[in-house]
């Protein structure tokens, strides 16, 4: 087994334009939100995101407009935390983010 430890900065450097990313967790629960927040500080763009019930970490990349496509079954933050603000911003009206909705 190899030691795979690296810094957040090194790990976010692995992400390149146009990549398809599966993002873990669910709604406000155990999503890698600090990782995607760190990604917003990089110029990476045209990401495609997927998950069965994407939550906060996905919403961050929709809000930053670094993603152009989101595959999801349910995309929201649930109850008190509300609808997914980045998704709404990116998809409503003239929003450019493409929704590919599964179940």
């Amino acid at each position: 087994m190899k030691n795979k430890m690296m810094s957040l900065l090194q790990a976010t450097d692995l992400i390149k334009d146009n990549m398809l990313l599966a993002i873990g967790g669910n709604a406000m629960h155990r999503t890698p939100s600090l990782f995607t927040l760190a990604l917003t500080r990089k110029p990476v763009k045209n990401l495609k995101l997927c998950g069965a019930a994407p939550g906060l970490a996905t919403d961050i990349l929709l809000a930053s407009q670094q993603a152009d496509t989101s595959y999801f079954g349910f995309s929201g933050l649930e109850n008190e935390a509300g609808l997914s603000p980045g998704m709404r911003k990116g998809m409503e009206g003239e929003g450019k983010i493409r929704a590919i909705e599964g179940s």
Binding site: M1, N3, M19, L21, I23, G24, G25, R30, L34, A57
Partner: peptide
């Protein structure tokens, strides 16, 4: 449905070892 083979999965977990288990 069409297959999705992501370039990366990004997950946050409670416990990992240095090798990624």
């Amino acid at each position: 449905v069409k297959a999705l083979a992501p370039d990366y999965a990004i997950v946050h977990v409670q416990e990992a070892d240095i090798y990624g288990n």
